[in-house]
Amino acid sequence: MTSNADAGGLELLHVTRGGLLESRHRGSVVLLAASGDVEHAVGDVEAPMFPRSSLKPLQTVAMLEAGLHAPQPSVALASASHVGEPAHLAGAREVLAAAGLDEAALGCPPDLPLHRPAMLEWVHAGGGPARICHNCSGKHAAMLATCVAAGWDTGAYLDASHPLQQAVTAQVERLSGARVAATSVDGCGAPALAIPLVALARSFARLTTAPGGTSERAVADAMRAHPQLVSGTDTPATELMASTPGLLAKNGAEGVWAAALPDGRAFAVKVDDGAGRALGPLLAVVLRFWGADDPVVRRWEHEPALGGGRPVGSVSPSPALLDLLGLPALADLPAPDAV
């Protein structure tokens, strides 16, 4: 096991432009072996942090346990940070309609689709910011449907004291093996729960290793079967789950990833500066550490830094991170077979 308790973490990524080092992203990272033991840990992985939307799969487990009955695509969308493509909006509406509700019941803030083509299509059709377009509308629709199924008040479903949110907190603590250290408010208005980074990794390992017939396995299977619903076109979560058999992965705001394989190997990272551009390269290099080496992994491991609309540098794993994982740089490797 590699360990470093330095709260400043490790230089995880380098951003280059024109051959010069322009920026650095530091953070904390933990990798678990299939046994559940910590294989690598850098930074303060025991300190409470907000996983943000990386907790959505655990929230969905709580909803299923509370009585939500939904088809597999809806379970995936409940766990999603979607980009507002037509299938995402239609899926959220279907969940609401099945519960006898409409978009007016949603408590997430109005927003525009995050996927640029979808946003342009929405605006050209006369649309403005709407709650259904928020990237958490699938989760909110499922939360409302859970309240209907359980006989709970839908008007106050975002309150931390609401039975739904109490059930979510209980499941997060059960799956992560850690007490929730703090509660705040997430960007979508739902409670944000703080747990240690290592506990987040362990919770994802529990999802992927759960036996069939459990709510944990149902969530993991739904996300892996419908990665396009979990995020969307041209996103690392969707593309890397689609290309890596058995991978479960979920990003969160402020630079958080959690991922696991069916054998229990798991990974979680928190980027200190919260940069979202760090996420693709970080998951991709961990997948290479786990033995995946295909064009999709290689593409995401080096995010292009653009100048004038063309690549002039990259966002790539730092030498320190490659050394931690015992990996050569991609330039030192032969090209993978074309897919």
Rank of each mutant, 00 (worst) to 15 (best):
A182R: 06
V148Y: 10
V172R: 06
G151L: 07
A192L: 15
G177W: 10
Y157N: 15
A149C: 14
H162R: 14
A149T: 07
S161C: 04
C188E: 04
A182Y: 01
V185Q: 08
D153L: 01
G177F: 13
P163G: 02
D153P: 06
A167Q: 07
E173D: 12
L164R: 13
A150S: 15
V172S: 10
L164S: 13
T169H: 14
V180A: 13
V180K: 13
Q166L: 04
Q171T: 14
T154C: 14
V148E: 05
T154N: 02
T154M: 00
Q171L: 11
V172P: 03
A181R: 00
V168I: 11
R179C: 12
V180N: 04
D153N: 02
A178W: 03
L175Y: 02
G151S: 05
G189L: 03
T154S: 03
Q165D: 08
D186W: 11
R174V: 12
A192R: 10
L158N: 05
A182F: 00
E173K: 09
D153V: 03
G155R: 04
D153G: 05
P191E: 09
G187Y: 05
A170G: 06
G155F: 00
D186Q: 13
A170Q: 15
G187L: 11
R174D: 04
Q165M: 12
V168W: 09
Q165E: 15
G151H: 06
E173S: 12
L164G: 08
G187N: 05
D153K: 01
S161E: 12
G177Y: 07
V148A: 01
D186K: 05
A156H: 08
L164C: 13
P163Y: 11
L158Y: 00
D159W: 01
A149P: 12
Y157H: 15
E173L: 12
R179K: 08
Q171K: 15
L158M: 14
L175M: 11
A182M: 00
L175Q: 07
G155K: 00
T154G: 12
A160W: 03
Q165P: 08
Q166E: 09
S184A: 06
G177H: 04
A181F: 03
L164Y: 11
D159F: 02
A178G: 13
T183A: 10
D159K: 02
T169Y: 01
G151W: 03
A181I: 06
D159S: 02
A192W: 08
L175C: 14
A167N: 01
G151M: 07
R174C: 08
A170D: 07
G189W: 06
D159P: 06
E173C: 10
V148T: 06
D159N: 10
A150D: 08
T183E: 15
A192M: 07
A178C: 13
A150E: 04
T154E: 05
